[in-house]
């Protein structure tokens, strides 16, 4: 399909790209595409495919375009962001309850920020779960490093 685009003039390609970008803001307008199709003697379905294709290219290269990136960011769900993590290690000496823990346990206070809103969550972990958590986070960190490397290699 990319081959097809190469047969068109710059004007046509320009207009198709324009429609693609507009569709990011306003959604895909079938009418607009039909008008374009008629104008250049194309099938409506062809125009639709080309606009889709152009959108795909834009999305892939969005890392280089702040405008498109900001639009895509607005479309993705807003999640709270990590802000800070406090922890405390406790050891229990004695207890009259069902939850007597012989092992040390860790209490954590997670701070997240969602826009202006600050939220804290308190939770508890035993050493085994802490090891699991650390391993998971280290795995995530490894993935970040790899993707980063791959991106750098692609751009060389």
């Amino acid at each position: 399909m990319m081959m097809r685009i190469m047969h068109f003039s710059f004007t046509v390609v320009g207009e198709l790209c324009h429609v693609a970008v507009e569709s990011l803001d306003n959604g895909i307008h079938v009418k607009t595409q039909q008008v374009l199709a008629k104008k250049y003697g194309l099938e409506a379905e062809t125009v639709h495919q080309i606009v889709d294709g152009v959108l795909f290219v834009f999305t892939e290269s969005s890392k280089y375009s702040s405008h498109i990136r900001s639009i895509l960011q607005e479309m993705s769900p807003v999640l709270p962001q990590y802000h800070d993590l406090e922890w405390r290690l406790d050891v229990q000496l004695a207890s009259r309850c069902l939850h007597h823990q012989v092992e040390p346990h860790i209490m954590l206070k997670l701070h997240t920020k969602e826009g202006e809103e600050n939220k804290t969550t308190i939770f508890q972990m035993d050493p085994v779960n802490l090891v699991h958590l650390t391993e998971s986070l280290e795995q995530a960190l490894e993935e970040v490093k790899t993707a980063h490397c791959r991106r750098i290699l692609r751009n060389i």
Binding site: R88, L93, S95
Partner: peptide, 20 residues
């Protein structure tokens, strides 16, 4: 009534809190 006697051993800001 349930109870636990414990010691806060350390935190991210202090390695030796040692507070029962």
């Amino acid at each position: 009534v349930q109870w636990t006697l414990g010691v806060a051993v350390s935190s991210n800001t202090c390695k030796n809190i040692n507070s029962p």
